[in-house]
């Protein structure tokens, strides 16, 4: 009915947070005179993965809702909002399906971030070992 609205709200928050974090990261980079080579992906970029998943998923689900006639181009836009019984059902669906959707997308993103962080740490360790080997020779 309107389950995608929860993900859309999270997408808005993620977009704002990613912009702010990116700004802070850029400021920090300007302050550092010696920029070190690093395998690390900035957190703002990782947050953009979540943002893209949430916006993309919400947009495609919006299309599905329009297809099923649950969203209309005139007020109140959500057909379920036109009477109290349907509105209650809609809110229940948002609280169950919608919240689960947002949580699972965020959970999957968390797993992806965890894996990439582990890969970055491994690459940095390998680099450090190579540098140490060069120094010994």
């Amino acid at each position: 009915m309107a389950c995608f609205l929860i993900s859309t709200a999270e997408a808005v928050v993620t977009t704002v947070a990613a912009k702010q974090i990116e700004k802070n990261e850029n400021l920090r980079e300007v302050n550092v005179s010696e920029v070190k080579y690093s395998h690390k992906t900035p957190f703002s970029k990782k947050l953009k993965w979540l943002r893209n998943m949430l916006w993309g998923g919400s947009a495609l689900l919006l299309f599905e809702h329009v297809w099923h006639g649950e969203i209309v181009p005139f007020f109140p836009f959500l057909t379920a909002a036109s009477n109290p019984a349907d509105a209650a059902e809609m809110l229940h669906e948002m609280a169950t399906v919608g919240v689960t959707m947002a949580l699972l997308v965020t959970g999957v993103w968390g797993v992806i971030v965890g894996i990439t962080t582990a890969m970055e740490k491994k690459a940095e360790k390998e680099d450090a070992a190579q540098i140490a080997e060069h120094a010994e020779n």
Partner: peptide, 21 residues
Amino acid sequence: IGILCWMYWGATIMWFVDAIF
């Protein structure tokens, strides 16, 4: 292409939840 990947994966996860319910 990365944008397209994230978009379709996001929608797939959301429809997966829908399917479970």
